[in-house]
Write a protein that binds this DNA or RNA. Structure first.
Length: 118
DNA sequence: CTGATGACTATAG
DNA sequence: CCTATAGCCATCA
């Protein structure tokens, strides 16, 4: 059984907002999606993405800046390549968060919830 | 209900 | 940098 549809929908909605050239941690995505503490749920939702998806899953990494896959594994290389396409380059195996960490604007944060009228 | 699992995270040594 | 520990919580057997 996959991640509940409504939760996956909110998680992916946040991931789609991450612009090229920026990265966000699983925990940060969970936070913005209104599910603090659900970092693992974010990983699960991304794992269930179909191969043809346009969701920029590669812009989501761990809090330390490392990719969530084993170093040099096929998945790890693919993510690194996709990041390179975005202009994000790894240094010593990790993404320099100081430079690429996503900083969503207040507007972006409020634009999300369709039901929660400020 | 109980126990295991995992694209996580924070803290300590 | 590394390992160990302890939280975390939806999902699954």
């Amino acid at each position: 059984m996959p991640v509940a549809a409504d939760k996956a929908e909110r998680i992916l909605a946040v991931v789609v907002d991450i612009p090229a050239g920026a990265v966000a941690s699983y925990g940060q995505v969970a936070d913005v999606a209104g599910m603090p503490g659900r970092a693992r749920l974010v990983g699960r939702a991304l794992r269930e993405l179909p191969s043809g998806s346009t969701v920029p899953w590669h812009r989501v990494i761990t809090a330390s800046g490392a990719l969530a896959f084993p170093t040099d594994s096929p998945a790890w290389r693919r993510q690194r390549d996709l990041l390179a396409d975005d202009g994000v380059v790894l240094e010593r195996g990790k993404v320099p968060l100081a430079r690429y960490r996503w900083a969503p604007s207040l507007d972006e944060l409020l634009w999300k919830p369709p039901g929660l009228q400020g």
